[in-house]
């Protein structure tokens, strides 16, 4: 599903965010990516979602070599990955329903089908009752779940999440992680960047630890 070989990422200015990282995530596997802030977690996720480009090395995602992907193919590639952002990246001038519908609208899914699938995704994250509300009226946890609903609505085989529990209380963040775990049980590959070690101990899943841009630990906890 994901395969990184000797990946380096250097930002303009010389900062080396990732140093010679190699790792593999199998189809339908779920793993946590941990490390202090600045260790390179976000950079790694951005490289996989092709939001950033590698400086050297190779990344294969969903059987595609990202270096060989033409610019115009990038949107189609991104449709195969659901990304949950720390800041959610919601559209605040559209309703909850329209936010979740966006990935389906850009794919040209027929209207009826969109309504059905958006409601299924909202139901899954427990926001069905709030579909007509603007996202600004939702609580932090609800906004996070809205971001997750949008990430899963077009059923991508891979989910990436960057600090999805960033500023939520423990109970809410457990709910969120359980939600991801549930998707994983339905066969979706999941990679979650988090510095919250509690989840890792709770769920006994694979853990990849980054330090100063290098993988220092890879354990099936």
């Amino acid at each position: 599903m994901i395969q990184l070989s000797n990946v380096c990422k250097r930002y303009p200015g010389g900062h080396e965010a990732l140093k010679n990282v190699s790792l593999a995530l199998a189809d339908g596997e779920m793993a946590f990516l941990t490390g202090h802030s600045g260790a390179g977690k976000s950079t790694l996720l951005k490289l996989i979602a092709l939001i950033e480009c590698v400086t050297s090395g190779q990344i294969m995602v969903n059987d595609k070599n990202l270096a060989r992907l033409a610019r115009r193919r990038i949107p189609y590639f991104r449709r195969g990955i659901g990304v949950v952002f720390q800041d959610n990246k919601l559209l605040f001038d559209r309703t909850v329903f329209d936010n979740v519908a966006l990935p389906l609208v850009v794919c040209g899914v027929p209207h009826k089908e969109i309504a059905r699938r958006v409601r299924a995704a909202l139901d899954k994250v427990g926001l069905l009752a709030k579909e007509k509300m603007p996202p600004i009226t939702l609580s932090g946890g609800e906004q996070q779940r809205l971001g997750i609903a949008r990430a899963v609505v077009n059923k991508p085989p891979l989910l990436l999440a960057d600090e999805p529990t960033g500023n939520l209380d423990p109970e809410l963040s457990d709910q969120i992680i359980d939600l991801f775990h549930d998707f994983n049980r339905h066969g979706v590959g999941v990679l979650i960047a988090t510095h919250d070690l509690r989840h890792i101990e709770r769920l006994k899943l694979r853990r990849l630890t980054l330090k100063d841009g290098a993988i220092v630990q890879d354990s099936a906890a």
């Binding site: 115009r72 991104r78 559209l91 990935p103 850009v106 794919c107």
Partner: peptide, 15 residues
């Protein structure tokens, strides 16, 4: 912002 998000969820330039 809207354009960025549309690009993130796989919207093509044409869209």
């Amino acid at each position: 912002t809207e354009i960025e998000i549309i690009k993130l969820v796989g919207g093509t330039d044409a869209f």
